[in-house]
Design a binder for these strands. Structure first.
Lengths: 115, 115
DNA sequence: TATTTGATTAAATGTTTATTTAATCGTTGA
DNA sequence: TCAACGATTAAATAAACATTTAATCAAATA
C-alpha cells in the first residue's frame, strides 16, 4: 500500500476547494459555452443585439433550435431579452460573469489559435 | 418583414467572428470544465499532483470513472501524467490555456458565490 | 376580428456522455 | 515467475441533450 496525503494536507485542500454550490455554478456557466452553437450565439450577442430570426439565419439553424439555446443561455443569466413589437431582441447580460466569459473566449482564441 | 442588418454590418461581424476551428477549440476546452466532476478534478490537479486512487477517494468515485475523466482532460491538453512505480501521477499541464482556465474558475467563484 | 409574422412549446427521435461491473494490462516484489 | 496492486479498457446501461416537425402563443395590422 503506497503513501497518501497526511490528514493535514488533505484538510488544507478540502478547505480551499470551492463548495458544492460554487462548483455547480461555475461548471454550469462554463458548460453553457461548451456547446459550439451556444458559444457562437453568446459571442454574437456580446457584440450586437439580435432577433431570433436573424440569429437563426446567422447560425444556419431553425428558429426552434435557436430558441432552445437562447432559453438555456437566458436561464443561466448569460443573456437578456426584450420585446420590440413582434420581435424578441437578445443581447449579452451586463454582468461581471459575462465580461469574464467574453474575455476568456477571446483570450483562449488568441492562445490556442494564433495566426 | 422587419429590418435586418445591412450587408456591411453583417460583413463586419462575420470577419470578427472566430473561425470554425477556433470555436471548436474554445468550446472544447470550456466544455471539459462544464462537467462538475471534471471541474473539481481539474481544480484539484491545479493545486497538487495526485494518483488515481487518491483522486477517486477525494471525489468519492470509482477509479474507472475517474480514469475516464482523466483521459478526457488529458486528451484536451489540460492535464499531464507521469508514471512512478505502479502509480500514475496526474497534475495540471503547465500552459497558458490552463493558467487562464484556473484563473477564471477562481474568478467566477468569486463573482458568483461571494460569502 | 381575422390574418400574418415572429417566437416559443411539445412530442418524438437520435446522439452523446457518464457510470457500473468485469476483464485486462503494467509494474513491483515475494 | 507468480501474486498483488494500481490503473486502464470494454461492454452494457442509463441519463442528458440537441434537433426536427407540428402545434400554439403573442403582437400588429388590415
Amino acid at each position: 500500500m503506497h503513501d497518501h496525503h497526511t490528514a493535514e494536507s488533505r484538510r488544507h485542500l478540502a478547505e480551499a476547494m470551492p463548495d458544492a454550490q460554487t462548483v455547480e455554478t461555475v461548471s454550469q456557466a462554463l458548460g453553457q459555452l461548451g456547446d459550439p452553437t451556444r458559444l457562437r450565439i453568446f459571442w454574437l450577442l456580446c457584440h450586437t443585439e439580435e432577433c431570433v430570426t436573424d440569429i437563426a439565419q446567422y447560425m444556419c439553424m431553425s428558429s426552434p433550435a435557436v430558441s432552445h439555446h437562447l432559453r438555456l443561455l437566458k436561464t443561466s443569466g448569460l443573456i437578456v431579452s426584450r420585446r420590440e413589437g413582434k420581435e424578441m431582441l437578445y443581447r449579452a447580460a451586463d454582468t461581471a460573469l459575462v465580461d469574464e466569459l467574453h474575455r476568456i473566449i477571446e483570450r483562449i482564441a488568441e492562445i490556442s489559435c494564433p495566426e
